[in-house]
């Protein structure tokens, strides 16, 4: 907290937007630091005999001791933490627990080697989803606000309320049932590899991308609609109406420019939400992404891989939320023009 206080004093001389943004960034950094410490300390919570569990019953005391030494469990926790942060920053996430044998033979792969191709796959899926979902959600949300309380609005409202409440795998399996099993249009398995050409890759991830789109679009749409409707209560909208502006003009010319801040926040927030939704969807479609990797690692209790995945997920989530806040601050006209 002392960082915040000193920031506060130091930022008095700065532009209010800059100081607020810096304060928020500082808070984000602290959060990231604490989160990394929590993720790191998880390895010390493991039961004492996990060396044998990883290496097998036949492991000799020497191999177990060597394994513990490799993890650095003979050093104090604080030293280990800073060594770990240092190596993470250098791009070294440690080595996986799997592939180790009791005899001391070590065929374990480095975590980076495991994570890297999978992270690229996940980013590809998330990117495609974002490109489809964001514009669609904005258009539908605007339309729902424009034709408020019409049948269109009510249908969209009930549909989104329903899809929000549904588990991702339900949506995914319904899509598989209709568009893969009954009508063989799309593959139900999204098994891509590094050699898969771009268009085939795009075709193979169509069902997972549609599932994710449906899941996050509902949120984004509702929040866009709410942001616009919220603004419609303001005085200047009343003024525009009294002036005789049409409903469409009021929304597109007067409300929308002021709604960009909440809408941008909503988008960043939902992309953060996408990060979590991706786990279940990847498992349903057996897509070789980082979510699937994490679930496999949790099942086999491969802690270094779990840590790396958790760090990536949490980091992305924190950064996107941070981005949402910063956009919200920067686009606030009251802060841009201080009195």
């Amino acid at each position: 907290m002392s960082v915040c206080v000193s920031l506060d004093v130091w930022s008095k001389s700065l532009h209010p937007v800059l100081s607020t943004v810096l304060k928020r960034l500082g808070l984000g950094l602290i959060t990231l630091f604490v989160v990394s410490a929590i993720i790191f300390s998880s390895i010390s919570l493991l039961p004492g005999d996990f060396g044998e569990a990883v290496l097998g019953q036949a492991a000799t005391e020497d191999t177990v001791a060597a394994f513990r030494k490799e993890l650095g469990l003979d050093k104090p926790a604080v030293t280990r933490y800073f060594e770990w942060v240092g190596s993470v920053l250098r791009g070294d996430l440690g080595t996986s627990f799997s592939g180790r044998a009791a005899s001391g033979v070590n065929r374990a792969r480095s975590v980076v080697e495991l994570v890297k191709p999978r992270l690229q796959n996940t980013l590809f899926l998330a990117g495609v989803t974002a490109i489809i979902a964001v514009p669609l959600a904005l258009i539908l949300g605007l339309a729902a606000a424009l034709y408020r309380n019409s049948y269109f609005d009510r249908t969209v409202n009930v549909t989104t309320l329903t899809t929000i409440a549904m588990p991702e795998f339900f949506v995914a399996y319904i899509l598989i049932l209709f568009f893969s099993s009954l009508l063989p249009w799309f593959p139900s398995l999204a098994n891509v590899s590094a050699e898969t050409p771009f268009w085939e890759r795009l075709y193979k991830i169509s069902l997972p991308a549609i599932t994710l789109t449906l899941v996050i679009m509902a949120h984004m749409m509702r929040m866009t609609r709410a942001a616009i409707i919220n603004l419609l209560a303001s005085d200047y909208i009343e003024m525009a109406r009294l002036k005789g502006a049409s409903r469409r003009e009021v929304i597109l010319k007067h409300a929308l420019p002021n709604a960009w801040a909440p809408i941008a926040t909503v988008i960043a927030f939902n992309l953060a939400f996408l990060v979590v939704g991706v786990v279940v969807v990847e498992v349903v479609f057996v897509y070789p992404g980082i979510g699937q990797l994490m679930v496999d690692a949790v099942t086999s209790r491969d802690i270094p891989v779990v840590q790396a995945c958790a760090l990536i997920f949490a980091g992305t989530y924190i950064l996107l939320n941070l981005l949402a806040d910063v956009i919200g601050i920067v686009s606030n006209p009251r802060l841009l023009h201080p009195r």
Partner: peptide, 20 residues
């Protein structure tokens, strides 16, 4: 604030991998 900064599904997965 810090706990809420981690998506709960991810956090739950991590803790379950440790405690079983």
């Amino acid at each position: 604030d810090v706990l809420m900064a981690i998506p709960s599904l991810i956090f739950a997965l991590m803790l379950l991998s440790i405690f079983g």
